[in-house]
Design a protein around this nucleic acid. Structure first.
Lengths: 198, 198, 198, 198
DNA sequence: AATGAATGAGGCTTCATTCAT
DNA sequence: GATGAATGAAGCCTCATTCAT
């Protein structure tokens, strides 16, 4: 009687990675729109265009949705910058500039999502120590090479690890503002590490 | 003024301000112990030693409990440091040092609660602009007085407003560590603002 | 606009034991009508005339509802018959008759509920060993007094503990049929324990 | 008749009866291991080594799986014992002994599965009336032949139909304990039916 | 014949809030 | 002012069943 949904209902039987992405995208969108509290699996499913049960085919629990997004963010923040350490053409200050540029690039684009994922939500902070290690390694390298003048590497790393976030908060998501913020923050980083002026 | 009536049944018929404090203390304790998620009005009432309904006599909603705590924290962070601006015996660098010392004092002691109140929980950030204004005023004052060399006051303020939090996170809640962190952060602040060495 | 429920909504603010009973009665009714599978906390609440949440004020979980009913049934089955052991005016055969009468009385009245509670549902069988102990004590007492001739007390107890249930299943819930079944089962019990004829 | 085709991929493209058996065996195993509640069609399929949809090719619903197992059990319990009625070399007491031996053999071996199938799960009891008829016929035959002294055949049949289950519950699944239980129960059955001593 | 991704109804439980006492 | 029993909306998750391939 009532017509069945057409055999080619858009989106049925997507490859697994496509479904996964649909769902994670839905989660990210909803987090950005409303924050964590009103996030429900029902709404995620609706936004992703799948049934509630389908979400659970791809993720073990609501929490797993968040964890997956967090993992992706850290991946983005750590993969590229880590290569800076191996580039012999760069000075230590150049590496630090590169790190700042990369992080600010990410943060300006995803600041609201970052905020929800790493502040509004607990947990998932283990990989932050990886970011801290990367920065620490850079500071120590520059100090040992005589490029930087740092009293306390650990404290300075903690300081910088938070500092760059501030200027990103008010920056609109445009290339121009990103460039401006990056330049400003790079300069401040250099001051903090006592980089010899160039 | 009027002597408080001796409490016959301990805790029953407390004056309003005492009840309010009991309840907020209970909220803070529970937030510190378990974070926001398991916080329920029932548990708050139980910890405060009052009935659930009583909580609603003093606060409009669960959210109002959080807001009240947030307000108190900002009050603590802003009241004393604001006086630094009016102390004529201080240099601008001295004022900045004082601000750092006060904020770190607060943060080291209450970092877990701060984390829950301002990160795990959204909202309540409006008063942060007050802190930002205070810091901005200090930077501008120092710059105009020739003590500081700052390119972009706004950006630098945002930078510093976040930076000092990092070193607090790993600092144990002892006077010794607080002193050490404060000294380190004050030094970094001076570098950032380009304070003339003393 | 819409009229509030009258202040004297029937049943609001019942004493705790009354509420408890309302809820357990609802559970028993629903179990009898439909068995365990379609039993839902929603339906229990509806039948009891309370809100779903109220059920959880009195019972920790759905399972606790069942356990409470089971406990009541065992209480009924064990409390009175235990007194038979202490009545010096009875022969051992008389005690056995009394036990059969009591259990059949219970079973005829509650056979459907018993079935659901003790068969359709697992668990809650620990108190059955109490019933077994009572029966075993009776058999051993009669045997030692020379009234019964029993080869294997344990096996005979297990045998009888199940046997009496069979005739109850087809018996309608009337006093007449109960009397008839009881008489028949008592006679069979006496045969099984080899009671000397009277 | 025709030789089965060698299975190239083990388990794929099995003849229908083999598939059916694989699935029912999986159901029985899972019921024994965990009882009914955690039984899901997914787990059945997994255990049977087929896809979920395949289960539905052989059985209409989850319930049909249970019914099929129940039918098999009744088949086992009724087929062989029915032949006892036609064996002219047996006395009625001998036939009753044979019935007890057969049922206890089955029950000791499968008591857990029986419990799940006939108690934890409702329904499927219609064939029990067949068992009841067989037993009733035996009692009536013995009574008419003057071997048994029974007051109420129906009631006695119901009594015995449940009685033999009790002693099986604690019996370990060994030949020795089965023999012992069978002997004990046979003796009690004879008492109940008032069999003339041999 | 076989697969397994997808569905969606429905279950249990929690908890902010109300209100009669 | 204080209480706490009662409410009921809403959330997370499971699983029998379907159907395009």
């Amino acid at each position: 009687m009532s017509p069945r949904p057409a055999a080619t209902t858009p989106g049925r039987f997507q490859p697994p990675d496509v479904r996964r992405r649909q769902i994670l995208t839905a989660v990210a969108e909803l987090l950005l729109e409303n924050g964590y509290d009103p996030l429900t699996v029902s709404r995620v499913a609706e936004r992703a265009g799948v049934a509630k049960g389908t979400v659970y085919l791809y993720f073990d629990s609501k929490h797993a949705l968040i964890s997956a997004l967090q993992a992706e963010m850290w991946e983005r923040m750590l993969a590229d910058p880590a290569r800076l350490m191996d580039d012999p053409s760069l000075t230590w200050a150049g590496r630090l500039d590169g790190l700042v540029a990369a992080w600010i690039h990410d943060e300006v684009r995803h600041k609201e999502l970052h905020h929800v994922l790493f502040h509004e939500l607990g947990g998932g902070f283990e990989p932050m120590s990886e970011a801290r290690e990367l920065l620490t390694a850079m500071l120590r390298g520059g100090a040992e090479a005589g490029e930087f003048a740092i009293d306390d590497v650990e404290l300075t790393a903690d300081f910088l690890l938070h500092a760059y976030l501030g200027p990103c908060h008010h920056a609109p998501n445009t290339e121009e503002s990103e460039t401006k913020v990056a330049a400003g923050v790079q300069a401040l980083f250099r001051r903090v590490v006592g980089a010899s002026l160039d």
